[in-house]
Amino acid sequence: MKNLEELRKIRDEARKTMDLRSGNQRARVVVCMGTCGIAAGARDTMQAFMESLEEAGATDVAVTAAGCAGFCDQEPLVEVEIKDGSTVRYGHVDAAAAQRIVKEHLMQGKVVESLVFSQGA
């Protein structure tokens, strides 16, 4: 390494992979992964969320799994929690729907009304 500029580059690159650890995410995407969810394709949904978030460069959104929420007919069911407290549940979320939720809800702050199953905590 020759100079500070190169050190900065290494720093910025390494930071990208470490933001998970602080636990300071602005939003959380919870993919319900009970037996019902997985059978309905929740794995693909989860994968789609991870890829779309990566593409969008959103480093402050956590993606986690949860068990069955009790609405098996809505699976794959996905909950989006924004840190200020608002929670939206989306039903029948396939990969395409996941992409839309990332783009519109998580990046632009607009709830995707046509996919909403229920709102509020």
Binding site: K16, T17, L20, M46, Q47, M50, E51, E54, A62, T64
Partner: peptide
């Protein structure tokens, strides 16, 4: 490949 969603430390 997307980056991991969870880290176990």
């Amino acid at each position: 490949m997307a980056k991991p969603r969870t880290v176990v430390m």
